[in-house]
Simulated scan of single mutants.
Amino acid sequence: MKNFNYSIPTEIFFGEGQIKVLPEQIKKYGTKVLLVYGGGSIKKNGVYSKVVELLNSNDIKFWELSGVDPNPRITSVRKGIQLCRENNIDFILPVGGGSSIDCSKVIAAGYYYEGEPWDIVLDPSKIRNALPIGAILTLAATGSEMNAGAVITNMDTNEKLGTGNPSMKPKFSILDPTYTFTVPKNQTAAGTVDIMSHVFENYFSSTKGAYVQNRLSESILKTCIQYGKLAMEEPENYEARANLMWASSLALNGLLGYGKESRWSVHPMEHELSAYYDITHGVGLGILTPYWMEYVMNETTIDSFVEYGVNVWGINPDKDKLQIAKEAIEKTKEFFISLDIPMHLEEVGIGEEKLETMAKAATRHGSLGLFRPLDSQDVLNIFKAAL
């Protein structure tokens, strides 16, 4: 296990009715709020009206930035920064999933940056400070409610990139599983895959001796397997929604990666798919993951897949190692299929024409991953296998 520093300062208010703490939490930081949300689902499910009621009854002024896209755009970030500066905003409140939260984080950081906001996406070292933000989560998926990272898309340049800074971590997040009851089946499925993919990126690592982290990772994967399909079939099943929501936060709050050396593989590959084709992030991850697993599984990495197969899928450890590894990958694919995740790029409108361009873009800063490093040809091979 590697040395690490541990800090997860976001305060979590988990459970039904926890939105009652919203006014007192906001007032720790300010009274002029930018409310950030997406396509309007929070108005249909009643979350918006509850937030507005609490803000108005506690003399908290607010302005709105709506229409944040599922792959949040730099154009929304620019609008948000302008609103903050024009109205002396001192707190940002995203209500929604990872897209609204990510957009808010970069708005918060861009408020203090005098140049073009895309600069701080390209180069996070330029981030010096950020407005405080809180989050009300309505979709279990990205884990953005409890970390310092954000992913933003620039449609003009076909780039979808991650950025981050400790100042961008939410001061608090309200996690009420009932707010996810109205999430459609397809989004529940994509969110479940996204959570699992975050775990995979840390779980499949060349670092030895991180026993605690690996067992935690396996428990979160088993949670997704236990409750992902159930949440789709019974959308108002509180137990299922609650477990998925907490799994989302734990999968990417740093806990699983501390003490492990990691560089992600599948996420940067999928970011290129989203940047060029604007597909749902979790769907892209679901398509690529089994093909990535098949590609990187070799004599050096096979033990990790055996461990995964035995501990997560309950495969008989007495079987041949290669058989266990292959069966584990197949079970992963079967589970994604059971969630109605497509298994081929062509099913989401992606053909061969841009695969090479995307493979080169994914590796423009060097190889992907440390578990088995991938160059542009490797990425292209995986893309082609996934067609």
Score class of each variant (00 low, 15 high):
residue 2 K to F: 07
residue 3 N to H: 12
residue 4 F to C: 01
residue 11 E to P: 05
residue 17 G to F: 02
residue 28 K to Y: 04
residue 35 L to C: 08
residue 37 Y to A: 03
residue 38 G to I: 08
residue 39 G to R: 10
residue 42 I to Y: 04
residue 44 K to G: 03
residue 49 S to M: 05
residue 50 K to Q: 13
residue 54 L to V: 03
residue 58 N to D: 14
residue 59 D to C: 06
residue 59 D to P: 02
residue 67 G to H: 08
residue 67 G to S: 11
residue 70 P to I: 11
residue 73 R to P: 08
residue 79 K to D: 12
residue 87 N to R: 09
residue 88 N to W: 00
residue 89 I to R: 01
residue 93 L to T: 15
residue 96 G to V: 08
residue 98 G to T: 12
residue 99 S to P: 13
residue 102 D to A: 13
residue 104 S to P: 12
residue 107 I to P: 11
residue 108 A to G: 13
residue 111 Y to E: 04
residue 111 Y to Q: 06
residue 112 Y to R: 00
residue 116 E to D: 15
residue 123 D to M: 00
residue 124 P to R: 11
residue 124 P to T: 05
residue 126 K to Y: 08
residue 132 P to S: 11
residue 132 P to L: 02
residue 132 P to M: 04
residue 133 I to H: 06
residue 144 S to T: 13
residue 146 M to V: 06
residue 147 N to S: 12
residue 149 G to V: 02
residue 150 A to K: 00
residue 152 I to L: 00
residue 152 I to N: 13
residue 156 D to P: 05
residue 156 D to I: 00
residue 163 T to L: 09
residue 165 N to S: 14
residue 169 K to Y: 04
residue 172 F to C: 06
residue 175 L to M: 15
residue 184 P to N: 04
residue 191 G to F: 06
residue 193 V to I: 03
residue 195 I to K: 04
residue 197 S to V: 10
residue 202 N to Q: 15
residue 204 F to A: 09
residue 206 S to A: 12
residue 208 K to F: 02
residue 209 G to H: 09
residue 212 V to P: 03
residue 216 L to N: 15
residue 217 S to D: 04
residue 221 L to K: 09
residue 224 C to M: 03
residue 226 Q to A: 11
residue 229 K to Q: 14
residue 232 M to L: 00
residue 235 P to L: 03
residue 235 P to C: 01
residue 236 E to V: 00
residue 237 N to H: 06
residue 243 N to K: 01
residue 246 W to E: 13
residue 247 A to M: 03
residue 257 G to H: 10
residue 260 K to F: 05
residue 260 K to N: 13
residue 263 R to W: 10
residue 264 W to E: 13
residue 269 M to R: 05
residue 275 A to V: 01
residue 276 Y to Q: 04
residue 278 D to H: 10
residue 278 D to F: 06
residue 279 I to C: 13
residue 280 T to V: 11
residue 281 H to E: 10
residue 284 G to V: 07
residue 286 G to K: 00
residue 290 P to T: 07
residue 296 V to H: 05
residue 297 M to L: 08
residue 297 M to T: 15
residue 307 E to T: 10
residue 308 Y to F: 15
residue 308 Y to P: 10
residue 314 G to W: 09
residue 316 N to M: 12
residue 316 N to V: 10
residue 324 I to T: 00
residue 325 A to W: 10
residue 326 K to A: 11
residue 327 E to S: 13
residue 328 A to K: 02
residue 329 I to K: 07
residue 330 E to P: 07
residue 334 E to S: 14
residue 338 S to V: 00
residue 340 D to P: 06
residue 344 H to Q: 05
residue 346 E to F: 00
residue 347 E to C: 01
residue 350 I to K: 08
residue 351 G to F: 02
residue 355 L to W: 04
residue 368 L to M: 06
residue 368 L to S: 06
residue 369 G to M: 00
residue 372 R to D: 14
residue 377 Q to I: 10
